[in-house]
């Protein structure tokens, strides 16, 4: 078992299989309400993000991604955690609002280059504590 340290952006715990994307996806316009990537220009088009630990280098695209993510969290079609090499406020906000409205927590963490060690299919647990600002990703 190995544990990677990360920065906590939103609180919570999530466990699931890693889906590592070749490039960032915009949740608005790029992911449908079933949690599937529909962006025709995206190399991972057709991939389902439901129940995964989503790993990507950063955020992307329209600021409406916060709403789409919050809705995916509400319906249970979204990732269980998001690991970003570089943090993204838009995604963090979607998770924060789902937390405020429904009490559903979905950790968003910033891993830096350590995120490179996570491969699609790896089963990981993400734990994120915004009080001390620290998060961990355990393989």
């Amino acid at each position: 078992m190995s544990e990677l340290a990360a920065v906590a952006l939103t609180r919570g715990e999530g466990r699931g299989p890693v889906v590592r994307l070749a490039e960032p996806v915009s949740f608005w316009g790029g992911v449908d309400l079933h949690g599937t990537i529909v962006d025709h220009f995206h190399p991972d088009v057709g991939t389902s993000l439901t129940g995964c630990v989503l790993v990507m280098s950063g955020g992307r695209g329209s600021s409406s991604a916060s709403s789409v993510l919050a809705e995916l969290i509400r319906t249970g079609k979204g990732p269980v955690a998001i690991v970003l090499e570089e943090g993204d406020a838009i995604l963090a906000l979607g998770a924060m609002v789902a937390d405020e409205l429904y009490g559903i927590v979905m950790p968003v963490v910033e891993s830096g280059r350590l995120g490179d060690r996570l491969m699609t299919g790896d089963m990981v647990t993400v734990v994120s504590d915004i009080i001390n600002g620290r998060a961990s990703i355990t393989l």
Partner: peptide, 17 residues
């Protein structure tokens, strides 16, 4: 404000709250 575009129930719940 961009939040006035409907993307699902969560956005409406937030505004109405």
């Amino acid at each position: 404000i961009d939040s006035c575009l409907y993307h699902g129930r969560a956005g409406l719940d937030f505004a109405e709250k």
